[in-house]
Design a protein around this nucleic acid. Structure first.
Length: 212
DNA sequence: CCGACGATTTCCT
DNA sequence: GGAAATCGTCGGT
């Protein structure tokens, strides 16, 4: 790698969850997500995230209002919104707007940077680079389920925490439409990922469907 | 490499 | 009743 030698601490991006959702999503790249259980700690460096803009965003769970499932999205920022989907998978979001504004960032993929042996045991057949590649595999790698819905990821001692990571320069950031969401267009950079990182999930366009 | 399909909860029409 | 912010497996090219 050709980067300059670091002889002094560099200013790390500070994740503030009440900024505009696209900014929060961008700033989460490179941050470290830590999950602590009785078995130990597994940590993932985030390589792919997506923004969901609440009530104004047809792709968001909050678009049609509050339900029992998405209630956490309407709460304060910095908390985990965990939902269950397709009858078998969990997905993890971070709420990132003041209470009442249901914006969130979906954590789609990351690189395991601690607890590799522990998380291998949770997915014995997966290659290491696939352990947290995709939103459902990421939650499985970290043993995240609905019990963690509403947890404050900014609190010390929380079972799920987000820490600042090394800076990710703009030149290394890719943006584009969200995975599996129809009608996203190319104008809004909903999805952010680290260019060339092998842990980023495969892109799949959303399918437009007719009303039944 | 690619596309099809099943698993099975939550929400919407 | 049917689709969904998904994934692993199967069969074809």
């Amino acid at each position: 790698m050709g980067g300059r030698e670091l002889t002094a601490p560099v200013p790390l991006p500070r994740v503030c969850y009440d900024r505009p959702v696209l900014e929060v999503a961008r700033s989460l790249l490179g941050c470290v997500l830590e999950r602590e259980t009785a078995d130990g700690v597994v940590a993932v460096r985030l390589t792919e995230v997506e923004a969901y803009a609440g009530a104004i965003d047809p792709g968001s769970h909050a678009y049609r209002g509050r339900t029992a499932r998405n209630a956490t999205m309407f709460g304060p920022p910095g908390h985990a919104y965990v939902y269950f989907t397709y009858g078998m998978h969990y997905c993890l979001n971070l709420v990132c707007a003041p209470a009442g504004t249901a914006e969130a960032v979906l954590l789609r993929a990351g690189e395991v940077v601690a607890g590799l042996e522990l998380t291998r045991g949770r997915q014995p057949d997966a290659r290491d680079r696939d352990l947290a590649r995709g939103p459902a595999r990421l939650t499985r790698a970290l043993a995240v389920d609905r019990v963690l819905d509403g947890v404050d990821v900014t609190a010390a001692g929380s079972p799920l925490r987000v820490l600042a990571g090394g800076p990710v320069p703009d030149a290394a950031v890719l943006t584009g439409p969200r995975v599996g969401v129809a009608g996203d267009g190319a104008l809004t950079p909903w999805r952010f990922s680290i260019a060339g990182d092998r842990t980023v999930s495969a892109y799949r366009p959303g399918v437009r469907r007719r009303r039944s």
